[in-house]
Design a protein around this nucleic acid. Structure first.
Lengths: 124, 124
DNA sequence: GTGACTGTATTATACATGTGATACAGTTGA
DNA sequence: TCAACTGTATCACATGTATAATACAGTCAC
């Protein structure tokens, strides 16, 4: 069963996107594997304190990306293979790396300063 | 006059927040200084291809944070001092560093791997 | 088979964001 | 003075996100 213990919701982006991101990061981290069972829409919405429709939207998109398999009445499961995992990994790593690099560059931070910043904040 | 030549709009966050972020990053980078003139609402909205109300919203928030000074009929100017600049700098650096660190951690990336990733993507 | 769960769908409501159009008063420079 | 700009404000409208309340049919363990 996929865990949402470490899930921290914020107001910076839509909730359904945060749910998708949480699962994709779990895939990259290896904590979410092929065949893993997902919490039902009702259970997860209750756990997160959000509307079932919001969870359904996240699950529907993941299903469209062929990362999740659902069928009426039955539970939903992760549907992964090596190619899909690698696709998600590239997508996330590139997005995150480019995000931080662009922002630091616009602020006139040098590469050395950026590396030092990551180093300093990592422990906290 | 504050430049928006390097401004790249995306769909990841509201436009008015992107305008605010562009100006704050310019402050941190030193390319935007106290007394600098801002483009008028109409001019900037035309330049970016967005609605004047969207620019107005960004400018209003910046004025509430006392980074911009406006008065009816006259042009708008940056209103900065050392303390404000440092406040913006801390805000942006901390946000960006924490963002990348959280995302990398959730993906199971080690600090060493994160540093290597920044190093590799920086040149591109 | 029955009951409790499941996925899926619909409707209404609310808020944030963005557009489009328009209006009015203050300033600035020629 | 006057024209062209400025900031500010309002209205209607569309879209995306999220909530709330239901409803229906499929699956599964007992």
């Amino acid at each position: 069963m996929i865990s949402f213990d470490s899930f921290k919701m914020n107001d910076d982006s839509p909730i359904y996107l945060q749910i998708i991101l949480h699962i994709k990061r779990g895939i990259v981290a290896g904590s979410i594997c092929d065949g893993d069972e997902l919490p039902s829409r009702r259970v997860l919405s209750s756990l997160l304190g959000v509307n079932p429709n919001t969870v359904q939207k996240a699950y529907r998109i993941l299903e469209e990306e062929e990362l999740v398999q659902s069928r009426p009445g039955a539970k939903s499961y992760m549907q992964l293979d090596e190619a899909k995992t690698e696709r998600v990994r590239s997508e996330l790593l590139e997005n995150d790396a480019l995000y931080i690099i662009n922002s630091m560059r616009q602020m006139g931070i040098s590469k050395a300063e950026a590396l030092k910043l990551i180093d300093r904040f990592w422990e906290e």
